[in-house]
C-alpha cells in the first residue's frame, strides 16, 4: 500500500483544552470525522469529502492521493476508485524504481570517470552528456513499453469516469446505502 502520511497530532503534546477543541471540531464539523488510530493519536479526515492530493514524492515525483470513500459509494464508483489507486501505485512504483536507478547509475558513472582521471573534480556538462545518452539509450524499450501501458490505463480511467458521469446524470448510479 502506498505510504500516505497522515496528520496525527500527539494528544500528549496538547493541553486538554486544545485536544477538546480539535475533537469537538472533528465531531461536529459538517464533513469531517475522526477515528482513533491508537490510544495516543487520532486522524483528522479530509475536510469537505474530497480526495486530497499531497506534495510530490521525493524520489518518484508522483503526487500521492488520499482517496475519499463516500459512505454510499456505488459499485461502479468503487471500481473506479480502486483502479485509480492501482494506476497511481503503478506510476509510483515505476518512477520510484526508475529514478533510483538513474541516480545510482549516475553516481557510479561519476565515480568511474573520476577514478579514470585520478581526481575528484566534478564532471563537466559534456562529460556528463555521455551518461545521459547511455542511460536514455539503455532504457528505450522500458519507456516505449511504459508509455503504451500508461496510455491504455489513462484512457481506460477516463472512460470509466465518463461512464460514472453518464450514469449519474441519468440517475442510474446504484447507491449502496
Amino acid at each position: 500500500m502506498y505510504r500516505l502520511r497522515q496528520i496525527s497530532i500527539k494528544t500528549a503534546n496538547l493541553n486538554p483544552s486544545c485536544s477538546a477543541l480539535l475533537k469537538r471540531a472533528a465531531a461536529t464539523g459538517p464533513n469531517s470525522s475522526s477515528k482513533h488510530a491508537d490510544g495516543s493519536s487520532f486522524v483528522i479526515q479530509a475536510v469537505g469529502e474530497k480526495d486530497m492530493v499531497g506534495p510530490p514524492d521525493k524520489v518518484s515525483n508522483i503526487r500521492p492521493i488520499r482517496f475519499h470513500i463516500p459512505a454510499n459509494e456505488s459499485p461502479v464508483e468503487k471500481e473506479y476508485r480502486l483502479t485509480r489507486q492501482e494506476v497511481l501505485q503503478w506510476n509510483q512504483d515505476f518512477w520510484s524504481n526508475h529514478n533510483t536507478k538513474f541516480l545510482k547509475e549516475r553516481n557510479e558513472f561519476i565515480e568511474n570517470e573520476q577514478r579514470k582521471k585520478c581526481n575528484n573534480d566534478p564532471l563537466s556538462a559534456d562529460e556528463m552528456s555521455v551518461f545521459y545518452k547511455q542511460f536514455l539509450d539503455n532504457n528505450w524499450q522500458v519507456h516505449v513499453k511504459y508509455n503504451a501501458e500508461w496510455y491504455k490505463k489513462n484512457i481506460g480511467l477516463m472512460l470509466q469516469s465518463f461512464k460514472i458521469l453518464v450514469l449519474k446524470s441519468f440517475g442510474r448510479l446504484n447507491r449502496s446505502s
Partner: peptide
C-alpha cells in the same frame, strides 16, 4: 506540531 509537508495536502475539487 505540523510538518511543512502536511500542510501541502489540498483537496481535489
Amino acid at each position: 506540531s505540523v510538518t511543512p509537508r502536511d500542510l501541502e495536502w489540498s483537496p481535489v475539487k
